[in-house]
């Protein structure tokens, strides 16, 4: 049963199937507290006591028993709940040393194709797991499993992005292996996923060269939130007028720290550089997140 909400689905049985539909049904549950994500296999309750009451500032007047008008200062991020779940996911990744990337892009830029190729080429070196987010169908998770990595599909229904709560449930059905890689393929959408932290180490934005050089200017939040831009479908460049330099310049205007790699999921061009990026960032992340750093 879902220990997070008690929603009754046997999520562990769904390893090879579609993720349970909690993501689209959880609004029926009354999430009236920061419930523990006591996932199967958790050794320690790494999040116990982590419920921070952001509202309990000095001005957080707590008047009981009086029914009168009053002003209360809240000072909480609108996404505070999501951020709380994200922090739990992040603590879990740190404890089990899972390097996690959140892949974001507009629909069809090639996220799944890139993952399929990456899995085929890297699975001998790292345990790889994938969480697939789409509004409908389990097609992408099926493609990932055929490529040789366990995957869970989360269907968001009407939702246009994954949130950290859904990912927490997705983790329940994936047997994560210590020291492994976890890819989260977000719903194809360059807007909302920028705002919803999932607990990942980095967001990676995938942009295909068929999309136009000004995408970074049109969707600045996404490029500001990402650490790496994969410029995909490089094999098509000879047929297009796409100006790679201009696209990179636009991305740097939004985010001076963003790195760009020109790749093709089809031909494999540039992917060696991506794997090197992955390994170096995973190593750096692991150093910064040794288990003692998240001890209770």
């Amino acid at each position: 049963m879902c220990t997070v909400c008690g929603c009754g689905t046997s999520s562990l049985e769904q390893k090879e199937a579609q993720g349970h539909e909690h993501a689209s049904t959880h609004r029926h549950h009354d999430h009236d507290h920061f419930h523990e994500h006591s996932h199967d296999g958790d050794k320690a309750s790494i999040i116990e006591g982590a419920t921070v009451d952001f509202g309990a500032g000095p001005a957080g007047a707590h008047v009981t028993g009086l029914s009168q008008e009053r002003i209360i200062r809240i000072e909480r991020d609108i996404l505070a709940k999501n951020n709380d779940y994200a922090a739990r996911n992040r603590a879990r990744f740190a404890q089990t040393r899972i390097f996690t990337l959140n892949l974001v892009s507009s629909p069809g830029s090639g996220k799944t194709s890139l993952l399929v190729r990456t899995i085929e080429e890297l699975r001998g070196r790292f345990p790889i797991r994938v969480i697939e987010g789409d509004q409908q169908t389990a097609n992408d998770a099926d493609r990932i499993r055929r490529a040789g990595a366990p995957a869970v599909q989360i269907n968001t229904g009407k939702g246009c992005h994954l949130d950290a709560h859904m990912v927490g449930h997705g983790l329940e059905t994936l047997k994560l292996e210590e020291g492994g890689l976890l890819f989260i393929e977000n719903v194809g959408n360059l807007v909302c996923p920028a705002a919803f932290d999932l607990g990942e180490a980095h967001k990676v934005v995938v942009l295909s060269v068929t999309e136009g050089e000004d995408k970074p200017l049109k969707y600045p939040q996404m490029f500001a939130a990402s650490n790496l831009m994969l410029l995909n479908k490089a094999d098509l460049l000879p047929h297009l007028d796409f100006d790679v330099g201009e696209c990179v310049a636009n991305a740097l205007r939004i985010n001076p720290d963003i790195q760009t790699l020109l790749v093709s999921a089809k031909t494999g061009e540039g992917l060696t550089a991506f794997y090197a990026w992955l390994e170096s960032h995973a190593a750096r992340w692991a150093r910064a997140n040794t288990p003692t750093a998240v001890a209770e």
Binding site: Q68, R70, I71, I72, R73, I74, R76, D77, A195
Partner: peptide, 20 residues
């Protein structure tokens, strides 16, 4: 010049509530 780094301004905050 174009060398401006965004420093603040992406807040999405619930500041306060008037309640009864």
């Amino acid at each position: 010049g174009n060398h401006v780094q965004a420093a603040a301004g992406d807040e999405l905050r619930l500041k306060e509530l008037e309640v009864e």
